[in-house]
Simulated assay, not measured.
Amino acid sequence: MAKLSNKFWFKLHGWFSLPVWIIFCFVCLTGTISVVSHELTWLTNPDSRASNPQNLAEKPMSELVEIVQQAHPTANITTVMSFESYLVNAVIFNDSDAPFAIAYVNQYTGQIQAINLGMTFTNFMRSLHGWLLFPWHVNYSVGYYIVCFMAIVMLGALVSGLVIYKKFWRSFIQPKLRLNQGKKTLLADLHRLAGVWSMWFLMLMSITGLWYLTQAIMWHNHIDLEPHAPLIEASQVPTSANDAPIRPYTLSNALQVAEQKFPGFKSTYIMLPEHNRDTYKVYGQGDHIFYDQYAYGVTVNPWSGTIESERSPAAMTTLQTLSHIADPLHYGTIGGLWTKVIWFIFGIFLTGMSITGFLMWGSRTVKAGRTDLDAPLATHSPQLVEQEGN
């Protein structure tokens, strides 16, 4: 009965991995690259580097918007984003000759270093990893569901693998890697060692992946995690017979409101009003390392300067908290570059495990096929074999 049980778990472990091996391996690989996509951008694109040889103070985002507006007077600026301290800020706008453009603005010098008219490397890798570039149908993507389903595959492979590998904890104190006993033994040792040392990472990726799956289902069923930013009452908007009214409160005022509301606030994502009843949406990060860079925020009325709505970890529901801590845990941004390196290394381990597992399965399949071919020769007379061949 024990042998039957082991055989069952072994087959289950294989079925959790092999039928979707290519997709699983691809998702692991693209996710590993996505973890260090900002660093790869810095290495490969000089225009993205926020050099600061004179140790200048960082300019506020409102000043960066003014710089881009002066350089492109007819542009409609919609969004401003900041990333790592060594990467430029992105000012997104559209113009008559550019339906979508990103100005790379050095936040220290104020220089526009480039205008990008396409998708960035980071966005491409996150999209490839997140939903395999499948199209979105309003509120869902088949590719997003496929990627999220890999969390179930990963969790099943982890549980079944631990059941198969008896006394797995010995790999922590007595790691075994036999280099001189053949390819099959080496692959098995690598697979087991990587699996045991990556247990925490596998569990973390599975849990965050299951949350993404839950989030996808809620999106698909029109369940909003965050309340929509309120519209300003029409009565608060002044009317003008000739020109459009000028907003008395600027983006600079909105940033000051956010900084006064949340001490230590650093803006990372800003959306400018799209119409007269819209607000300044100012989001950023605070002193909670486990929350993403959008966990704090306010929407500010451009006509009165008042806060229409606000966001902070202290006021979040359980689902909102999960949505804001999932990305830092999934991509390893909680501790900056050091945790990114750790996530990158274990991402390589995870990708390697999928490859070694497939190679082991392929070796056993070929061996089993050869055994089946040799079996008739060993169990039948030459005359019968000849008749069966005819």
Rank of each mutant, 00 (worst) to 15 (best):
residue 94 N to A: 09
residue 103 A to I: 13
residue 141 S to K: 03
residue 17 S to Q: 05
residue 240 S to F: 00
residue 348 I to C: 10
residue 368 A to D: 10
residue 83 F to S: 15
residue 44 T to M: 11
residue 249 Y to D: 08
residue 3 K to A: 15
residue 101 A to K: 11
residue 78 T to I: 11
residue 32 T to M: 03
residue 260 Q to L: 11
residue 368 A to N: 12
residue 87 L to W: 03
residue 376 P to S: 05
residue 222 H to K: 14
residue 184 K to Y: 14
residue 358 F to R: 00
residue 229 A to P: 00
residue 310 E to H: 13
residue 361 W to N: 08
residue 242 N to F: 04
residue 384 L to C: 03
residue 308 E to M: 11
residue 54 Q to L: 12
residue 9 W to A: 06
residue 357 G to D: 02
residue 89 N to H: 12
residue 60 P to I: 08
residue 106 N to C: 10
residue 33 I to N: 03
residue 126 R to H: 09
residue 339 T to Y: 02
residue 56 L to N: 14
residue 215 Q to L: 12
residue 324 H to D: 05
residue 64 L to D: 10
residue 40 L to H: 02
residue 381 S to A: 07
residue 312 S to D: 09
residue 267 S to L: 03
residue 188 A to R: 13
residue 294 Y to H: 09
residue 375 A to E: 14
residue 385 V to Y: 03
residue 376 P to Q: 11
residue 377 L to I: 13
residue 136 W to K: 13
residue 317 T to N: 13
residue 75 A to F: 01
residue 284 G to I: 07
residue 331 Y to A: 08
residue 67 I to S: 06
residue 232 I to L: 04
residue 152 I to A: 05
residue 315 A to R: 15
residue 258 A to E: 03
residue 300 V to M: 07
residue 366 V to S: 15
residue 373 L to N: 14
residue 360 M to F: 07
residue 267 S to R: 02
residue 278 D to K: 00
residue 246 I to D: 04
residue 251 L to T: 04
residue 14 G to E: 10
residue 340 K to F: 10
residue 212 Y to S: 06
residue 356 T to V: 12
residue 298 V to L: 05
residue 317 T to S: 15
residue 17 S to Y: 00
residue 162 L to I: 14
residue 144 Y to I: 03
residue 245 P to S: 05
residue 385 V to E: 08
residue 134 F to M: 10
residue 244 A to H: 04
residue 248 P to K: 04
residue 243 D to V: 15
residue 341 V to F: 01
residue 51 S to E: 13
residue 353 M to Q: 04
residue 102 I to S: 06
residue 242 N to Q: 13
residue 360 M to R: 01
residue 78 T to D: 12
residue 269 Y to W: 09
residue 326 A to F: 02
residue 299 T to R: 07
residue 305 G to A: 07
residue 160 S to L: 04
residue 324 H to M: 07
residue 390 N to Q: 13
residue 270 I to P: 00
residue 131 W to D: 04
residue 135 P to N: 08
residue 351 T to Q: 02
residue 89 N to F: 02
residue 160 S to Q: 05
residue 41 T to Y: 02
residue 134 F to R: 06
residue 172 F to Y: 06
residue 310 E to F: 11
residue 138 V to S: 09
residue 364 R to G: 05
residue 10 F to Q: 10
residue 236 Q to C: 07
residue 256 Q to G: 12
residue 308 E to G: 05
residue 228 H to M: 09
residue 90 A to G: 09
residue 153 V to K: 01
residue 331 Y to Q: 06
residue 68 V to Q: 08
residue 37 S to F: 05
residue 167 K to N: 15
residue 209 G to F: 00
residue 301 N to L: 02
residue 79 T to Y: 03
residue 9 W to E: 02
residue 38 H to F: 08
residue 286 G to M: 06
residue 1 M to C: 04
residue 347 G to L: 05
residue 376 P to K: 01
residue 217 I to L: 10
residue 1 M to A: 09
residue 232 I to W: 01
residue 154 M to E: 08
residue 316 M to T: 07
residue 154 M to Y: 04
residue 221 N to S: 13
residue 145 Y to L: 14
residue 147 V to S: 00
residue 341 V to R: 11
residue 65 V to L: 00
residue 255 L to S: 07
residue 89 N to S: 15
residue 184 K to R: 11
residue 265 F to D: 08
residue 304 S to Y: 01
